[in-house]
Design a protein around this nucleic acid. Structure first.
Length: 559
RNA sequence: UGCCUCGUGGUGUAAUGGUAGCACUAGAGACUCUGAAUCUCUCUGUCUAGGUUCGAAUCCUAGCGAGGCAGCCA
């Protein structure tokens, strides 16, 4: 059994939080999850959500959801919606008592950001710079001061106001912090605080034509919201001195927020970066953001992964500053570990082959008892119909099986789960020589619970009654990439697994007709499955969330 | 190139100067009306070299290696 979120982990950030609380640095801790609404959330965001909300939950604090919407040309309301859906899905019933109202928007603070910027100009710590982006870049590399660096406060105030008033075109001027043009850390070489963008913002419309840069907006948003621990990923490490500079320069009173960084999540056989996920969607290599093969939160949800499994996974991987590569096997294990406990067992045949029981009376139907969940005594039993004509998995029969094949073969015996032992007498083939039907005899005494029920047969296979079976579409997924590190070098899209999706027409046992999209099912011997939203009352569509562990497959691969 | 950060079994993580532990993976076995689950066992580790110390994964120095940043993106 692996850790669950009921046993919160310890990591360097939680240690800092605990110590700050102990030392009385803050009365209550407040974290935040600050996505930019320019795409869908993925499993890496889930890690961050579980960290920030998890800390709020464990330490009696609050976590804000904040849209970091300071760049109007990349952001859209559609993304805000999907982000909120995903966050709520992951957090509700777990840390929803620790959500800071919300969502908050950086754009709601534009006026305050502006006032603070005016303050900064007034105290001589910011100036309007007229250099082009190219010049700015070149000067910064050289550690050279802008010719506009020593402008008077009055002129800066005037120019900044006119920037805001829309007097200048995009890119004409910027507001820059006056720090140190030759600082070792390039983010301190007079970073841009405001740029001109005559673009419509998804929330503020055309009210603004100057927009704050990340560092200015983020630091002040954190301060305004009373954030205590501002947790972000490693690439912002070099920004921390600027974060602290802003708080110092404005002489903002304590308590102030502090920034801490952790390593983002990398998973084998996948890509976890917004940029690459966008390409998969726009190049139509997958069927949208919520394609079950995508490691987006919406994709994982559609695939059938539960919020609790995702949270447990987030806790299993830990939080460090080491840029690690987690094995996909750990995600799969976490899902299986949970689903084994909760999933309702059902019999479904993915690739059917007809079996006729020649000595079983025609028209006779038996109702057999089947266990709903052997891991849960309260789950009870159900009845499944059994008759002369059945379907079994075509993979469970081999005309010329390898050594150690435990299933059905010509002249061989196998147990039908919850039913009888059958013996394969005859194969019926089509003109092409494919086996299309098996004619078998039943050991009528071998019924589960019957006189010779204890008779040992090596294999037990699943089946469904042919006349009672319901047809359903089942989507089987494999990893999206064929190599462990598709983004290690070359074009990651060239490593796409062409067989990542297989659709089959399955035969399901009748009770599955009343299946619920909220419930998780184990189709015995096949894996864990969940209903897809594409399902209609006439036809169910199932997604395989994850297979069962399969040591026979490994065995087969070895030989 | 400069700056920052990080190096613990195959992978991910713990040990906060005092027995290198846990999980995943892999392998072996037991059990099994799911080749699942469960149970038992096994393999494999502190980047290197110095130093401090009774004692170093932990502290110091140097080296080596990896990652990040160097947008008017976040």
């Amino acid at each position: 059994m692996t850790a669950s979120t009921e046993n919160p982990p310890s990591d360097f950030i939680r240690d800092i939080v605990a110590e700050d609380l102990r030392a009385g640095k803050y009365k209550q801790i407040r974290t935040r999850f600050p996505p930019e609404p320019n795409g869908y959330l993925h499993i890496g965001h889930a890690k961050s959500i579980c960290l920030n909300f998890g800390i709020a939950r464990e330490f009696g604090g609050i976590c804000n959801i904040r849209m970091d919407d300071t760049n109007p040309i990349k952001e859209e309301a559609e993304y805000v919606e999907s982000i909120m859906t995903d966050v709520r899905w992951l957090v509700d019933g777990w840390a929803d008592n620790h959500v800071g109202g919300a969502p908050f928007y950086a754009s709601d603070y534009f006026e305050q950001f502006y006032e603070y910027a005016v303050d900064l100009v007034r105290i001589g710590k910011a100036y309007v710079c007229d250099m082009t982006p190219e010049e700015t870049d070149a000067y910064r590399r050289l550690g050279k001061a802008s010719a506009f660096r020593e402008r008077s406060v009055e002129e800066n105030l005037d120019l900044f106001a006119r920037m805001k008033a829309g007097e200048f075109p995009d890119g004409a001027r910027t507001l820059r912090a006056k720090i140190d043009v030759n600082a070792a850390n390039v983010w301190l070489r007079d970073p841009v605080l405001y740029r001109i963008r005559h673009a419509s913002h998804h929330r503020t419309g055309d009210k603004w034509c100057i927009y704050p840069m990340y560092d200015w907006a983020h630091t002040l948003s954190d301060y305004i919201e009373g954030i205590t621990h501002s947790i972000c990923t490693l690439e912002f490490e070099v920004h921390r001195p600027l974060y602290d500079w802003i708080l110092d320069a404005l002489e903002l009173p304590e308590p102030r927020p502090h920034q801490y960084e952790f390593a983002r999540l990398n998973l084998t056989y996948s890509v976890v970066s917004k940029r690459k996920l966008i390409q998969l969607v726009s190049d139509k290599l997958v069927n949208g953001w919520d394609d079950p093969r995508m490691l987006t939160i919406s994709g994982l949800r559609r695939r059938g992964v539960t919020p609790s499994a995702l949270r447990t996974f987030a806790y299993n991987i830990g939080i460090t500053k080491y840029p690690s590569l987690t094995e996909m096997a750990l995600l799969e294990h976490t899902i299986r570990d949970e689903f084994n406990r909760i999933a309702t067992r059902r019999l479904t045949v993915l690739r059917p082959i007809k079996v006729v029981l020649t000595n079983f009376p025609e028209g006779k139907i038996e109702e057999l008892d089947a266990i709903n969940n052997p891991e849960d005594a309260n789950a009870g039993t159900r009845k499944i119909p059994f008759g002369r004509e059945l379907y079994i998995e075509s993979h469970d029969f081999m005309e010329t099986p390898p050594p150690k094949f435990f299933r059905l073969r010509p002249g061989g015996e196998v147990r039908l789960k919850y039913a009888y032992i059958i013996k394969c007498d005859e194969m019926v083939k089509d003109e092409a020589g494919n086996v299309i039907e098996l004619r078998c005899t039943v050991d009528l005494d071998s019924k589960s619970g019957g006189p010779t029920a204890g008779r040992k047969v090596k294999g037990t296979i699943h089946w469904v009654s042919a006349p009672h079976a319901i047809d359903a579409e089942v989507r089987l997924y494999d990893r999206l990439f064929t190599v462990p590190e598709p983004d290690a070098g070359g074009d990651f899209k060239s490593f796409i697994n062409p067989n990542s999706l297989e659709v089959v027409n399955a035969k399901c046992e009748p009770v599955l007709a009343s299946a619920s999209p909220k419930e998780r099912y184990q189709f015995e011997r096949l894996g864990y499955f969940a209903l897809d939203p594409d399902s209609t009352p006439e036809r169910q569509v199932w997604n395989r969330t994850v297979t069962l562990r399969d040591t026979s497959a490994k065995e087969a691969k070895r030989s």
